[in-house]
Design a protein around this nucleic acid. Sequence first.
DNA 1: TGTTACTTTATAATCCTTATAAACAGTGTA
DNA 2: TACACTGTTTATAAGGATTATAAAGTAACA
Lengths: 152, 152
Amino acid sequence: MSHTHVHESHEQLKDALDTLKQTGVRITPQRHAILEFLVDSMTHPTADDIYKALEGTFPNMSVATVYNNLRVFREIGLVRELTYGDTSSRFDFITTEHYHVICESCNKIVDFHYPGLDEVEQFASHVTGFEISHHRMEIYGRCPDCSNKDLH
Amino acid sequence: MSHTHVHESHEQLKDALDTLKQTGVRITPQRHAILEFLVDSMTHPTADDIYKALEGTFPNMSVATVYNNLRVFREIGLVRELTYGDTSSRFDFITTEHYHVICESCNKIVDFHYPGLDEVEQFASHVTGFEISHHRMEIYGRCPDCSNKDLH
DNA sequence: TGTTACTTTATAATCCTTATAAACAGTGTA
DNA sequence: TACACTGTTTATAAGGATTATAAAGTAACA
């Protein structure tokens, strides 16, 4: 299981680097590191999280570099930017289609897979006349840990 | 039709003011004006939109007043805060349950009604163990106007 | 080798939102 | 009415996330 995950991560990173090549985006050490961190990360990091995480490896890296490259990755479809109510955006390496459940108490974000809401898109297209491209959905609630805390 | 809408607006404003009374929130001229603007607005305004719109009536009103009261309205459930990718939040007077379609070209926001996605909430609760409270969903695409522009 | 375009860095600037403190206004009580 | 109490607005400062800018660095390629 763990071995499988490691292998998947490598594959995902390799695919991402291939995408960079195909799109003509240079693979710099910083870009490599940011992508690697995102692929391995299960935590939906903010730009600052990434910046801090790579501080050790790249003592001179600028915050702007993180932001610039996250924008590049977003534009070529490698990364999704999540804008919730809180102050800063979170970034998510795109693998398969999934949604997020967010704990309103501790802000934990958990993935869950669900068949795409195509029928909602079709309905929206029908009533509004829009050409639909995609949608986003998040579900809010309390995670098991925080629910248990309430019992004390 | 128009007459009906005017009447509905009055009812909605009245209901909102009642809610303020019940919750023990004072009805100040500024709060009245902000609520009235939100009820009449079909445009999902930003805090700054509201500030500018009421500048004529309240030349001395502070931006902080707008933000403070939008927070109050949100906390008592009169208003919903929409956080999309763009820089500033938009605010939406809550009437009945509806979702939003957003034009990626001109940023227009159109409402559409759709039965709540309860089954998705239940599924998410089942697989993650969360106690679900609510969800959000937005659909993105191109509005008819912008689609037509492409044809030229 | 030299030129060109891209990238990173460092820093400043911008913009949205919140915090703070003083002035103001309503409400209730003696 | 006078007075204290609490909530509200105002004005301004501060905070924090993100973007813009210019200089320095680096890869690609003729």
